[in-house]
Design a protein around this nucleic acid. Structure first.
Length: 735
DNA sequence: ACCGGAAGAG
DNA sequence: CTCTTCCGGT
């Protein structure tokens, strides 16, 4: 059925949240687009089509008009709107699908980040932490896993040190504003490259769950980026479009099961959705971990409207965010979950092929009408009906958790990181101009990196972005490994493979296909990354700076970017909030669990994998090179500091806080009411999510301690969600 | 149609 | 910062 667009669903709700848009408080274009996409009424104007994440503007003028209305810019037209859209290219939020008119494709990873950069993971419940390798180290402030860039960076780390800088970057990245690593590297790429460089074979295998070979190297093996994605899919929903939308016609393209929706599986909790969200991945055992039962109904993704329970949302987001990141980056993901077992890869090709065939048909069918059923509640519906694919694929190995892999990071000292990153030189790229200025770097650089200098060189250093943050495992790269005992990541400069350096990619498109991946990877590596307009800045690659390695880190996202689009991220194992228990169960059978992490839990309640990591893990994260971002380092520092003070809250403008406070108060009141109501069951109330859970399902032990925090944070979240929801009207209200 | 630079608004 | 405007180029 229906294309996703038809359903109106297609995008994960979380993607919609406008919220945190950085600078501009106003609605952002991509968000607006998403809104239109999700509404059926605009189906004739704009709709999902093609690969996942791809949409077509059927009526450009109308879209422009709507946009103009929303922004109170009557003069808006497609030309202008498209210009704005083009700006997203660099941000990597969107890509142009070449060859198809008015067709663009979203990058979810970015969106997630953008939307929820602030999510406070700080309050992440303990139980969650358990699964994540968080840098909890100190315990105090930990901010959630690395997934979020900001978090990644932020943690204590030496702010002053390079890490600090990074953090700022990270934030930006999160916002999406940054090109992020676009410039640089992506994890995947790195990995791949690394491997490639190494000559490894990464190719395959990947999966083996078992593990990898062990050792640092092992990680790598385990996680082949690409494979992992696919694998994940399978796990989650399976490539087959679980969602039921078979539609993708383009079979050829990757895996996306559903063509239209961005998520391979439907994002929704439904079958497909469930897959995504709740996938049984959790090796960790969900039930125990997920203390709360998230109200299924409320889950964010459910209807097409924003109906969600903030709490759940939050949890979801957290999880999702993380997963996204991880996902994309496969490596990290795994790192994070030491116990995870990777599913064996099935040959995607096969799957794809099969699917593709189907999809085509389905799609066609869907296209026509759409009407009837939309499953808004996919969870149920989907699950029920479509079963996407048989389980087979899915669980490759159901659970075998082989014990932990050798790699666990948990304890890992920082050293071992499996991956190495390549750093990119500052992106000169496109705007050199922009970049040049900001001396601020000095602060950064002073310490260690010189940034820029080497333009072309690519470096690789250990640390993984993601994990870095927390875990501490950052570490070094397997290959290189360079870690120093100090814990700081060492940076190593490696010459990048020629290939990388060289290529140029073209870029824009990414439409589907390999190119995408390639592009991205390239981009990452290549100095130019940014879509480079730069005709060649070639940089002298490698050489330069060996010493200085700026850290530009690749971003986590990056790699994924496109990939991500293509594939949804798997939820972190322990996390999946809702769904899991319920949905999952139901679905469980079908859903193949992909990753598994170890149930460490079981035994102990949740012992978190010791990921705690050193506090000081050096994190190197990726840094965007773009100097263009001028954010001051000091500023970031300050922010961080403040964050630390208040763990939970992220830094936000005072005003907002105030607002939130008020809202909180209200919420409190509502909460009470809600409790009463709760029993009745309500679905779409967005607001309060907070109250509910508490009583409903008591949290697990582990998380008790953090409960307070959690609640607080949730409250915030809910407030934000509220706001977001409110904001969402397409047509603008009065201008 | 699409691209992206430049300037500028908010 | 994000987006709006303009605009020259493909």
């Amino acid at each position: 059925m229906k294309t996703p667009g038809d359903n109106g669903i297609a995008f994960p709700e979380w993607a919609y949240k406008p919220e945190s848009s950085p600078g501009s408080r106003q609605i952002q274009l991509w968000h607006f687009i998403l809104e239109l996409l999700r509404k059926e009424e605009y189906h004739d104007v704009i709709a999902w089509q093609g690969d996942y994440g791809e949409f077509v503007i059927k009526d450009p003028d109308e879209v422009a008009r709507l946009w103009g209305a929303r922004k109170c810019k009557p003069q808006m037209n497609y030309d202008k709107l498209s210009r704005a859209l083009r700006y997203y290219y660099n941000k990597r939020i969107l890509h142009k699908t070449k060859g198809k008119k008015f067709t663009y494709k979203f990058n979810f990873n970015k969106l997630v980040l953008v939307n929820y950069p602030l999510i406070d993971m700080g309050s992440t419940p303990v139980f969650l932490r358990a699964h994540l390798p968080v840098p909890t180290g100190a315990g105090t402030h930990f901010r959630f896993p690395p997934s979020t860039p900001s978090e990644v960076l932020s943690p204590n780390e030496d702010l002053r040190s390079p890490g600090g800088m990074f953090s700022s970057v990270a934030r930006r990245m999160a916002r999406g504003s940054v090109s992020d690593c676009s410039d640089g590297t992506s994890v995947n790429s790195e990995i791949e490259e690394g491997n490639g460089g190494a000559g490894e074979e990464r190719g395959e295998r990947s999966v083996s769950g078992g593990g990898g070979p062990g050792g640092g190297g092992g990680y790598r093996g385990i996680i082949h980026p690409r494979l992992s994605h696919e694998a994940l899919f399978r796990m989650y929903g399976g490539p087959g479009n679980p969602g039921g939308h078979p539609g993708s016609r383009h079979a050829a393209h990757r895996i996306h099961p559903d063509s239209l929706s961005p998520f391979p599986v439907s994002p929704l909790p439904g079958p497909g959705g469930a897959g995504l969200l709740a996938p049984p991945l959790s090796p960790m055992t969900p039930s125990s971990h997920l203390p709360y039962t998230p109200s299924p109904t409320l889950s964010p993704m459910l209807g097409s409207h924003f109906s969600f329970n903030p709490e759940d949302m939050k949890r979801y987001l957290q999880a999702h965010t993380q997963s996204v990141y991880n996902y994309g980056l496969s490596p990290r993901a795994f790192l994070q979950y030491p116990n995870i077992v990777i599913p064996q890869p099935h040959r995607p090709a096969a799957d794809k092929a099969g699917l593709s065939g189907e999809r085509g048909a389905a799609e066609r069918a869907g296209r026509g009408d759409r009407g009837g059923e939309r499953h808004h509640h996919p969870s149920l519906a989907h699950a029920t009906h479509h079963h996407p694919h048989p389980p087979h694929s899915a669980h490759p190995h159901t659970h075998s958790h082989p014990m932990h892999h050798p790699l666990h990071l948990g304890e890992e000292p920082p050293h071992m990181s499996p991956f190495k990153f390549k750093l990119q030189p500052p992106p000169l790229g496109r705007k050199h101009k922009e970049s040049h200025s900001k001396p601020r770097q000095s602060s950064l650089s002073s310490g260690s990196m010189t940034s820029t200098s080497g333009l072309g060189s690519s470096l690789s250093f250990g640390s993984d972005l993601s994990s870095a943050s927390g875990s501490g495992f950052i570490s070094a790269s397997s290959s290189t490994q360079s870690l120093n005992s100090s814990g700081l990541p060492k940076i190593k400069v490696e010459p990048i493979s020629d290939i990388e350096s060289e290529e140029e990619v073209e870029v824009t498109d990414i439409s589907d296909e390999d190119p995408d991946e390639r592009d991205e990877e390239f981009k990452l590596f290549s100095p130019r990354h940014f879509r480079a307009p730069e005709p060649h800045r070639h940089h002298h690659h490698h050489l330069a700076n060996s010493t200085a390695a700026p850290q530009h880190h690749p971003h986590p996202d990056e790699d994924l970017d496109e990939d991500v689009f293509k594939a949804p991220a798997p939820p972190p194992p322990g996390l999946m909030p809702f769904f899991t228990s319920q949905h999952t169960h139901s679905n469980a059978p079908r859903m193949p669990p992909a990753l598994k992490s170890e149930p460490a839990d079981h035994g102990d309640s949740n012992t978190p994998p010791p990921q705690t990591g050193s506090v000081e893990a050096p994190q190197t994260k990726c840094i965007p090179l773009k100097l263009r971002f001028k954010r001051r380092w000091s500023e970031d520092q300050r922010m961080e500091a403040s964050q630390e003070e208040s763990d939970d809250k992220k830094v936000r403008p005072e005003e907002e806080r105030e607002k939130e406070k008020e809202k909180e108060r209200q919420r409190q009141r509502e909460k009470e009411r809600e409790r009463e109501r709760q029993s009745n069951g309500r679905m779409e109330t967005e607001e309060n999510g907070t109250g509910s859970r508490e009583e409903d399902s008591p949290p697990p032990l582990a998380y008790e301690g953090s409960l307070a925090t959690l609640l607080a944070s949730q409250r915030q979240v809910s407030a934000e969600l509220h706001r977001a929801t409110a904001q969402l009207s397409l047509e603008n209200k009065d201008c």
